[in-house]
Amino acid sequence: MKLRSTLGIAIGTLAIVGMLAGCSTATTSKPVGASEKDKLTIGVSFDLLNDIRNAELDAIKAAAKAKGDTIDFVSADQDAQKQASQIQDLIQSKSVDAVIVIAVNSDQIASSVALAKAKSVPFIAIDRAIADAGNVTFQITGDPIADGGLAAKEALAASGDRTIIQLVGALTDQNAVGRRDGFTKEIEAGGGTVAAQVPTDWDLTKALDGTANALQANPAINTIFIPSDYLLPSVESALKAAGRLAPVGDPKHVFLVTIDGDPNGCKAIEAKLLDSDVVTPIGQFGVQAIDAAHVAHSGKKPSPATAAVPGFVINQANQASESSKTWGCAS
């Protein structure tokens, strides 16, 4: 009995020590010498990691590499309190020269903005606009309302009356709400009919089940608005189950329009499954954010201090010319 207990404790202790040793191999190097003052260490804090975030991170890393900067990355798993702690660690314990942030929550990031200001560390917000934009050094985001509007115009440009299922992202995310509102406004102005709104919470299963239910309740559906490319597989599955999945050009085809321009969206356009995609200019986020960090570090104020970059459309007609500009088609 005693031997077994001792053994158990020994194994447990070894496990912890082993894990810590494992951690050490992942240490990020910080090759910033005193002589290279214009090469910065930049802390990057994201709300979460997924395809788009990985692409945004790659864009930042590419832009940083071009300038010789070092990136120190953390992800908050959609926890606002965790993000505040991580940014505090970046600024105070790791003494980064600037932070680039995708906020978990546009209001609750305010305390981190205040901390950065107090410590004179440039604070750069990307992707999600933050409420306290006045105290941010620089902000570059997409324009969710314009993007939703662009998607609506694509749907309205298709011939015939439009009867639409509108998928909606998480209602606590203002990017989702903006895309919804922009789409709805433009559709109402153009005479389309939103027959069903499907709340998805950005969840694949809810998107699938909700779309399946809506397709059953409304057989006249001929258009589906999908507010992010990564929900596309769910919609395709629902269409397939309802026997309504057909390529562009087939009379049975349901017009599909999405936003983001990720690799799935790009492939679906090529495969003639998706009609239109509003592409978010993620590459620009990275370049402009890193530029702003250098401008601010040299003591100047980036101007303009905020930028909202609307997306552009890639569709069946223009894909040959636009795919080179679409981030999802690059990989």
Binding site: L208, P233, E236
Partner: peptide, 9 residues
């Protein structure tokens, strides 16, 4: 059913 996997699945 889904045909895709997301990190928060």
């Amino acid at each position: 059913r889904l045909g895709a996997v997301q990190p928060t699945l």
